[in-house]
């Protein structure tokens, strides 16, 4: 946790300095609160909504209607469960705490519809990159954690609200898919997928100087 905290702080500082030094480019830093609705194998493991998540996203507008982005985000899915776990030659039951910790690190491009100065602008985008994933199972006195890396795809769509010359707000919907790997907890090949909903605030360049 300590490392993640420092990583986020460093990223924020780096991105802010980037905004200042590249003022001639139309850059924008977004911070968002993220919700996650698990799907597929992720839902089988933790079926409940993740309301714990955040994202930092740096966008560079290379054209008025096109931006390139780098983003780091995080969502944790948690469920207390008593469901039986079926393995190839065993069944296990007991009170469990199940976690999926997701840290997508993505690069992508977005296209914006409409004029770039005022009002509300719909956008669509596609991101790809790496997903750092932690699965954790606490059952009885046992605690099993596995950390894995996955290739990740993330199509997205949303609305950007121009608040003023210095800031935007954003609402975005995304489909998140991490490629499969074998879980040492369940012994099965699982992929990760979830629907993400974010509410963000963006600082345009010129904000911090």
């Amino acid at each position: 946790m300590k490392n993640i905290k420092y990583l986020i702080i460093i990223i924020v500082l780096v991105l802010m300095s980037s905004v200042k030094s590249n003022a001639q480019y139309n850059n924008e830093v977004f911070l968002s609160y993220n919700l996650g609705l698990p799907l597929g194998d992720s839902k089988d493991y933790v079926s409940t909504l993740s309301y714990i998540g955040t994202e930092i996203n740096l966008k560079r507008f290379v054209k008025p209607n096109v931006s390139l982005s780098i983003s780091f985000s995080w969502n944790v899915f948690y469920k207390e469960s008593s469901d039986m776990i079926s393995l190839p030659n065993a069944d296990v039951s007991g009170k469990q705490n199940r976690y999926i910790n997701t840290v997508p690190m993505l690069a992508g491009a977005q296209y914006y519809f409409g004029r770039n100065t005022n009002g509300i602008r719909p956008y669509v985008g596609a991101n790809l990159g790496a997903l750092y994933l932690g699965r954790r199972l606490q059952i009885g006195v046992y605690d099993i954690t596995e950390n894995t890396w996955h290739f990740m795809l993330q199509p997205e769509a949303g609305l950007i609200f121009n608040l003023n010359d210095y800031s935007d707000a954003v609402i975005g919907l995304s489909y998140n898919y991490g490629t499969s790997s074998t879980s040492s907890i369940t012994g099965k090949s699982v992929s990760e997928s979830w629907i993400g909903l974010k509410f963000g605030y963006g600082w345009k360049n010129g904000m911090f100087y």
Binding site: N89, A90, D91, V92, G94, V141
Partner: peptide, 8 residues
């Protein structure tokens, strides 16, 4: 903390 495991 009780866990039931059945092996078959």
């Amino acid at each position: 903390y009780d866990v039931v495991v059945t092996l078959h």
